[in-house]
Structure formats: structure tokens, C-alpha cells
Design a protein around this nucleic acid. Structure first.
Length: 902
RNA sequence: GCACGCUUAGCUCAGCUGGUUAGAGCAUCUCGUUUACACCGAGAGGGUCGGGGGUUCGAAUCCCUCAGCGUGCACCA
């Protein structure tokens, strides 16, 4: 018999176990013939190292995948990384700046900077991949993908061309979000709103201008071309349609047209707003509406891409920064006594999530994806596709419906679609997929992945490629199928798409989930995944987000080195609910580590007693099973069913809780302890290993390393990672359905607990051996013979009992303490001296009071006619039994109180 | 402003479609080194399930309402 080392050392074990898995290629689905189950790993950004959030994702994902793999499915977890366009470039530029290269783009140029970024990306890719392995994630490394590799490049180009040909991608001049610091556009989703104090100025453009307006951005007023009021606003109706020419210092006198627009709230401020089409998305919308109505207003750009005032803002303003211009304009208003009011308010401003600066609205020529346009041949827009995938199913097919867990995110998602504008996909940064568009000097625009040979309209052979790159989410949107070799019709693509499951944090719902749905339904006419599980964010013990700047960052690798991966995984998955944030702190990991230790010791004990046999070798002999054998078999049967159900429904936390309770309480504290005193050792030697095997397998998806290590130490014939997940069916033949085995076992265990409780309450030292009487005349199911058979168990299980007397007839009770179990068995302890201190008495009196209250509540319930007529029979019967037991327990307390009185 | 959550033991959280005296882990207190485990064992204390109202024989669970906290979207005149 093999012996496990006294302590489990994850540090000395985990890497070897992972190497073992890799060597066997057991994570490659090609070796399995079952029903496909695929998960595409959300590719981490190559911006550095993985954080705790990644550890959570890997734990969730890997638990699910291991479970399905053990269920015999052809399981693929496809690993990958994301080039993370802006994020990575911003990160590398920051590093370069800290190294003294203050203007990386100008100083290095495109080629050199790209080289730097690539080196950084490759480096961090390496780190990330090794970290994923450290976390025990069971991915098929032979299918490793990268959003920026050649295969994904082809997919990106193919999709771009398809969208362009369908007219869904267009190049247009529109107001976009512009980060001055990053010198790039960003999508609406890439804005982070922060609240900051601002001043709201109320003024009129000129003395004779009839409508006052308010603004927090006075400098942009140099580009105003209209004043908008609500069409029904009686105050201003007479001015609608009129144009006023005012001179506020801009290059040309402003022609302010009074326009009517439904979006104006007449009760807010002055009920009128100055329209700056060039520097506000809302105002730009009005500008578009006016044009559509045939009443165009002008558009004057007064801020340039560097955040400086343009020539159009007037000679006094040209070249000034936005802040300088604001000050100047306000003092001009003041001097001209046009300023009516100045008040301090709180204001939300959009900042770039990557560069951190306040984003300016600027009109520019960019590439957009039209989300409202009808897709040729579809009679639907991209928006419709995005909506349908989660409502009626793609193509109204219920089998192509995405289920979002928890459901609340479905509403959030649909609400977001409502407000969705065209998606600006071009970026002015350099790290990313270059827009595959080439311009000929003749004005022709060609879509091509590489430089075209010659122009289709003028035969010229010289082209300029569009300088911009694509939003990183364009390529991640293709992830579920680009990773499978699409646009080739590969076997992988046919087998594994749509993927079965996806998990992600709620912060990337719109960035990623939405775009995957858009791309997949449009490009390949399939949903990207069937189920999506949204997890919450990890926070520190004070509820704060983890971040480097807050200084509360925890490196998962540090935790792994200290406590092991299994402990980290277990602690991350414990106590989480889908969509809810959870707190992470070291005590939780310690608890998980302790559990891993416990499992190790359980295994160590069983291994020292018996060697692992396969079920084919030796069959359990039914007749040799004790009540407790049957009890644990029944509980095992039950735990397998309920853990499977939890995992099938992504209730990781609940599954862990049940397994934890079963392992530590039912199995270790009761069954193993009892097994030490039962004589059917031959049967125990068969049954213990069988139970241990299934226990390890049940735990394996959560804590893969320690379970595999024990498994290997015990019987190295096969890897646990590809062994079947326990089947409850196996235990059915050993479960007694007609006799109430668990109740007998429960009764014995309860008697033991009762004795222990009495000992503690009475402060009886362990070396004091006591004798007890057991009265089961009114027990619900026990007989004295049954109880006598378990006398040795009761005596041996930390009860300190030397003698048990079974009461079969009425006898005179000595000075006693009696306690009745819920099974109706009364344990009587006779002592010469009972504790009589007032504290013990008070406690008992309190207990009695509680009991009496409970009894009268039950009595009321049972005498309530409505209850008796309306409630189901089994509920009523249950209440009656409860009442019976409660009465007996109350009597015990009364007797006890009487006894200590004398 | 609109929408969606959350509020359960000192702490962190479970509690599915309403039905045992509302659970777990940690922490606390008491006792204990019994041959797998002190990263342990045995026992105990601790909650009027945010407030109010309603539906029901029965509500932590369903409905309404109020309060506090949080998130998303919009606004950012």
C-alpha cells in the first residue's frame, strides 16, 4: 500500500501535474468521440500580466470545461490572446515616455514603434500563456490563437470586405469622439464618464439676441450655428425659422438660426440651447435632422485635433487652448454685459478609457459600421440581428437563441441596443489591423488585403493604403469562428461552432458580447455561443476595485505560490453568484487551502487502509454493508445528482458548498470515524476506495491538481482529467428503498451528538467515564435491538461512554438529565451532582420558553381550519410529527429543571 | 432623468419554482492532543431575513411602497 507524504505541497506538485496532462495531450478534443462541447477562451490582452479577474475567469471556465470533458464530451477549450490595439499601444508608449522618449510616434516613426510594441506584446504573451497554465486551465494548446496572427488577419479582411460590399461599412464625415492625448478616435463604449465640478454660464450672443442660452463650454459657442427650442414652446415660437447674425469674435459673424427640435427640454435651463454641430454629438444629430428636413444649418469647427482653437474661431482665439479660449470668451461676455448668470454645477464628462484625457467631439472622416441599414437580402439591420439573437433566436430559430445568465443582463443589453449609434471602427493608432483600403491618385478606392496590382479604373499602379487601423473589438468580434479556421470551412469550424458556452465580466458586455453576436449572426449566419455566463467583478475586502493605481493589486501568481492553485480556484468560486461582484481576501484562500489539506488527509487515511481497486475487480457485497455504509452511499448518490444539477446550471458556489459539506461532515467526520469501529473491514476496503475515487472525481473540476496528484499516487492507470464524472446510477443497487436506513443512521448519529452536547453542557471532563440510559420506547422507528447493535459505535465515537442501559419498561428515574432527539429517542444521563448554577438554569429556562412558543405556534397552525383544509396532506403530517417531538423535548427540559431544583 | 440590481448572524455570502425551529464559511466562546489531519476534533452562542403595507392556510421567497447602497444608459443646454 502506497503512502502519501504527510503534507501536500502544491509548489512541488502542480507544475509536474500540468506537464503530465500536456504530455498526454488529454486536452485535445481530437482524441474524444463524444458530442462536441466548445468554449473559446476570452483572449487576455497582451498588455502585461494576468490579474485576479483572469484567475476567476480561468477558474469558472476550466471548471465547466473539465466537467464536460469528464462527461465524455468532445471538449475544446481554445486558448488565445488579444493584441488589444489601443490598450497595448498606450501601454508601450507610456513605458517609452518613462524612458525619456517623450513623443514616441514622432521620434520613432511607424515602423520602429510597431517593432517596440510587437516585442512587448510577444513578451507579455509568453508570460500570459505560462500564467494560464499555472492556473491549471485545461486548454488545447495545439489550437492556440492570437487576434493579430495571420489566420485571424485573413478573417478580419474577409469580414471587412463583406461588410463593405454590403454597404454596411462606410467612410463618412461625422462628429466622433477624439482623444487628444491618444490622437485617435474612440467608440462610444470606450468612454468613461467621470463627474467633475464645472461652471454653467447663461448668456446671450448679443444685446439684441432674444433667447438666452446656457453652456459649460463657452469656447465652443464660437462655432454655434443655431439655437434650438422645443417646437411647442410658446415663449420662443415666434422666432423659429429666423436667423440672427451676431458677432462674438469668431472669424465670420455667426448666423444663428432658431430651430425647433423635439429633443429640447423646455423646462430645463432657459429652455433653449445653443447648437454647436461640430463639437457635440447631440447637436450634430440636430444638424443632421435639419439637413434631412431641408433646412440646413452650418457646421463650424473651432477646435482642432490638438485641442487648439482653429482659425475659424477668430483671430483672437486661433491657436489658444480650449481652456484659454474659454477664459477669454467668458471675460468678453462679462465685459460686454452679455453674461446673465454663472453657477457652479457638477458635470459628467467622457474620458478616454485608455488615455484618460477628456474626449473632444470633433468632425472627422472615419470608417463606420452602419447598425441601422438594411442588410442586403435580409430585410433586417445589424441592430435587428443583435436583438433577435437573445429574444426570438437568430432567424427566429429557438435553437439559435442565446441564453444570458443571469437574465437581468438581457434587459441591459437590449436597452443598450436601443441607444446604439453607428460604430466608428477606424483608429489613428498604429498597433492593429490596418484598414484594407487603398487609394489611387485618380480617387478610386480599392479593398484589398495587400497592395493591389493596378487600379481598376485608371490602370495606375501606385496606391496609398489607408493609414488607420481597426478597433480591436472588430477582430475580437470574430473570435468564436476566426479561431476555428474560418473563412475556410474547416472540420473544426463545422464541429465546434456555435460554441456552447462563454463566460465574461459584465464590463465587456457591449464591447465584446454584443460585437460577437453582431459579427457571427451577420457573417456566418450563426449565433456565436449558446449560453453566456456573466460573472461579477472581484473587489478587495473593503469593496474597492483592484487596481494598480489604488495600490491594492494582488498578483494571482503570488497567491498560487503561497497557497497553491487549487486553493486559489476554490476561494474564487466560493460564494459567487452570477453577475454579482464578490470580495476576495486572504482568509478565504486559507479556508480553501485547509480544505485541500483535508481532502489530502482523507485520501491519506484511506490509502493507508486499502488499495485502490477498480469496480470491475471487486464488487461490493450488498449483504456486508452496514447501516452507515448504506448511509454514506445514499448521501453520495444524492450529492452526485445535486452537484451535477448545479454544474449543469452554472451554480458553482452551490456545488462547492454541497461537496464541501458532504466531504468534511458526512464523509470525514462521520463515516470515516465510524468506519474505524466497524468490523466489516473487507467490505470497507472495497467501499472506501470506491467512494474516494468518486470524491476525487467530483472535486476535480474545481481543484484539478490535488485530485489528480492523489489519483496518480493511488492508481496511475489513467488520468483523472479524462476519467468519467461520477454517475449516481452506480450506487442505486446498494440503496435500500424499502427500509429507512438513513433514518437509523441519523438516529445513531443524533444520539452520539446528544451525548456529546450533554457532556459539554454539564462540563464533564473527558477522563470522567459516564454511563447513560437510552429510552426509545417512544421512538419513531428505533427498537432496542437496533440500538444495541450500535452500542460499540456510540461508545467509541468521542462520547466517553462506558455503559449503556436500554430502558424497556417504566422505571424510577434517578436524578437525571434527559434530552430527546428529533427521532424520539431520549438519552438519559444519571449523575450524582448536576450543575446547578444559575447560568445553566437560565439557559434552560430560555430554551423552554422558546420551545413552548414553538409548540403553541404549531398547535395554532394545526387547529386552524383553513390550514387543515388548504394545505397539502404531507405538510400537515409533517407539522404533526414536529409537534409530537417538540412536546417531548419540552418535557425533558421541565424534568431537568425539576431535578436541579431539588 | 430612465432602467436594473442589492439590503439575510460580527464579517463574506448561499437560500431554485412560497411549506422543518432561516443555512454555510470565517470570526467569537468552551472543551480536547483519541493511532488521516491542530491547515485538527467535539460543543456552544449569535439573525423579529432594510422599514411599512398587501396577496396567501402559510412569505426571506410573490406584489406595492419608502429608505439606503450600487451598476448600466442617457443627460452633460
Amino acid at each position: 500500500m502506497k503512502e502519501l507524504p504527510k503534507n501536500y505541497s502544491p509548489q512541488d506538485t502542480e507544475d509536474q501535474i500540468y506537464a503530465l496532462w500536456e504530455k498526454s495531450d488529454c486536452f485535445n478534443p481530437d482524441h474524444i468521440d463524444g458530442e462536441p462541447f466548445s468554449v473559446m477562451m476570452p483572449p487576455p490582452n497582451v498588455t502585461g500580466v494576468l490579474h485576479l479577474g483572469h484567475a476567476l475567469e480561468n477558474s469558472i471556465m476550466d471548471t465547466m470545461v473539465r466537467y464536460e470533458r469528464m462527461n465524455g464530451k468532445k471538449t475544446l477549450l481554445l486558448p488565445g490572446t488579444d493584441h488589444a490595439a489601443i490598450a497595448t499601444q498606450a501601454k508601450v508608449e507610456k513605458i517609452l515616455i518613462s524612458q525619456g522618449i517623450l513623443h514616441p510616434r514622432e521620434e520613432l516613426g511607424r515602423e520602429k514603434l510597431l517593432h517596440e510594441i510587437k516585442a512587448f506584446a510577444e513578451d507579455s504573451k509568453k508570460t500570459i500563456l505560462s500564467q494560464i497554465k499555472k492556473m491549471g486551465t485545461s486548454c488545447d494548446w495545439s489550437r492556440l490563437a492570437y487576434t493579430f496572427d495571420d489566420a485571424r488577419n485573413i478573417a478580419v479582411f474577409t469580414v471587412f470586405k463583406k461588410m463593405f460590399d454590403d454597404g454596411l461599412i462606410y467612410r463618412g464625415h461625422r462628429v466622433v469622439n477624439w482623444s487628444i492625448k491618444g490622437q485617435s478616435t474612440c467608440s462610444d463604449e470606450e468612454l468613461e464618464y467621470i463627474e467633475r465640478p464645472a461652471k454653467l454660464y447663461t448668456f446671450t450672443y448679443a444685446k439684441d439676441f432674444p433667447i438666452p442660452i446656457a453652456t459649460t463650454r463657452p469656447e465652443t459657442k464660437l462655432g454655434d450655428t443655431a439655437v434650438a427650442v422645443h417646437p411647442n414652446d410658446t415663449r420662443y415660437q415666434k422666432y423659429i425659422g429666423q436667423t440672427f447674425t451676431v458677432n462674438v469674435g469668431a472669424k465670420n459673424p455667426l448666423k444663428i438660426k432658431v430651430i425647433a427640435d423635439d429633443s429640447v427640454d423646455p423646462s430645463f435651463g432657459t429652455g433653449a440651447l445653443g447648437v454647436t454641430p461640430a463639437h457635440s454629438a447631440i447637436d450634430y444629430d440636430m444638424y443632421t435632422r435639419q439637413r434631412a428636413q431641408g433646412n440646413p444649418i452650418e457646421l463650424i469647427q473651432v477646435i482642432d485635433q490638438n485641442g487648439a482653437m482653429t482659425e475659424l474661431s477668430g483671430p483672437e482665439y486661433t491657436g489658444l487652448s480650449v481652456e484659454q479660449a474659454r477664459e477669454k470668451f467668458v471675460s468678453w461676455l462679462r465685459e460686454s454685459t452679455l453674461l446673465l448668470k454663472e453657477e457652479a454645477i457638477m458635470q459628467n464628462v467622457g474620458t478616454s478609457d485608455r488615455f484618460g484625457d477628456i474626449v473632444e467631439a470633433i468632425p472627422m472622416t472615419q470608417w463606420f459600421i452602419d447598425v441601422n441599414k438594411t442588410i442586403p437580402g435580409k430585410n433586417k439591420s445589424l441592430k435587428d440581428l443583435m436583438r433577435e439573437a437573445v429574444t426570438i433566436g437568430h432567424n427566429a430559430d429557438p435553437n439559435q437563441k442565446i441564453t444570458i445568465c443571469p437574465k437581468k443582463f438581457e434587459k441591459i443589453y437590449l436597452n443598450w441596443i436601443e441607444n446604439l449609434r453607428d460604430w466608428c471602427v477606424s483608429r489613428q493608432i498604429w498597433w492593429g489591423h490596418r484598414i484594407p483600403v487603398w487609394y489611387c491618385s485618380c480617387g478610386e478606392m480599392l479593398i484589398s488585403q495587400t497592395q493591389p496590382a493596378h487600379c481598376t479604373s485608371c490602370t495606375s499602379t501606385t496606391f496609398i493604403q489607408d493609414a488607420d487601423t481597426l478597433d480591436t473589438w472588430f477582430s475580437s468580434g470574430l473570435w468564436t469562428f476566426s479561431t476555428l479556421g474560418w473563412p475556410e470551412e474547416t472540420p473544426d469550424f463545422k464541429t465546434f461552432h456555435p460554441s456552447n458556452w462563454m463566460q465574461m465580466g459584465h464590463e465587456i458586455l457591449f464591447f465584446w458580447m454584443a460585437r460577437m453576436i453582431l459579427m457571427s449572426t451577420y457573417v456566418i449566419d450563426q449565433i456565436p455561443f449558446k449560453d453566456v455566463y456573466i460573472h461579477g467583478m472581484l473587489r478587495d475586502e473593503n469593496g474597492k476595485k483592484f487596481s494598480k493605481s489604488a495600490g491594492n493589486n494582488i498578483d494571482p501568481i503570488d497567491i498560487i505560490e503561497k497557497f497553491g492553485t487549487d486553493a486559489l480556484r476554490l476561494s474564487l468560486l466560493s460564494g459567487i453568484a452570477p453577475g454579482n461582484d464578490s470580495k476576495f481576501y486572504e482568509e478565504k484562500v486559507i479556508g480553501a487551502r485547509n480544505f485541500v489539506s483535508k481532502l489530502w488527509n482523507i485520501s491519506r487515511f484511506i490509502m493507508s487502509k486499502s488499495k485502490l481497486t477498480t469496480t470491475q475487480d471487486q464488487k461490493i457485497k450488498r449483504d456486508d454493508l452496514t447501516v452507515f455504509d448504506k448511509m454514506i452511499i445514499q448521501k453520495m448518490h444524492h450529492v452526485i445528482i445535486s452537484v451535477r444539477k448545479d454544474l449543469d446550471n452554472y451554480r458553482f458556489s452551490q456545488a462547492i458548498e454541497k461537496l464541501h459539506h458532504f466531504t468534511w461532515n458526512d464523509f470525514a467526520d462521520w463515516y470515516i470515524e465510524i468506519s474505524k469501529f466497524e468490523s466489516n473491514t473487507a467490505t470497507k476496503q472495497i467501499i472506501l476506495p470506491i467512494l474516494l475515487k468518486d470524491l476525487l472525481a467530483l472535486w476535480h473540476p474545481f481543484i484539478p491538481f490535488v485530485t489528480e496528484e492523489i489519483w496518480q499516487q493511488y492508481s496511475a492507470d489513467k488520468l483523472l482529467a479524462i476519467s468519467p464524472y461520477p454517475n449516481a446510477q452506480f450506487y442505486i443497487p446498494y440503496i435500500d428503498t424499502h427500509t429507512d436506513i438513513t433514518s437509523t443512521a441519523d438516529m445513531i448519529m443524533e444520539i452520539i451528538s446528544t451525548i456529546r452536547t450533554i457532556r459539554q453542557e454539564q462540563n464533564i471532563t473527558p477522563d470522567t467515564k459516564i454511563s447513560i440510559m437510552i429510552d426509545n420506547r417512544k421512538s419513531l422507528l428505533g427498537t432496542t435491538e437496533v440500538l444495541s447493535a450500535y452500542e460499540h459505535i456510540i461508545k467509541n465515537l468521542r462520547t466517553g461512554i462506558t455503559k449503556i442501559e436500554f430502558i424497556t419498561a417504566d422505571i424510577a428515574m434517578p436524578s437525571t438529565i434527559a434530552k430527546t432527539t428529533t427521532h424520539g429517542v431520549t438519552v438519559i444521563l444519571s449523575l450524582n451532582t448536576l450543575i446547578k448554577d444559575t447560568r445553566a438554569r437560565e439557559k434552560k429556562e430560555k430554551e423552554l420558553l422558546k420551545m413552548q412558543k414553538y409548540i403553541s405556534a404549531l398547535e395554532n397552525k394545526l387547529s386552524n381550519e383553513s390550514f387543515v383544509t388548504h394545505a397539502p396532506k404531507d405538510i400537515i403530517a409533517g407539522e404533526e410529527t414536529k409537534l409530537k417531538t417538540a412536546k417531548k423535548q419540552a418535557q425533558d427540559i421541565v424534568t431537568y429543571l425539576d431535578n436541579i431544583k431539588t
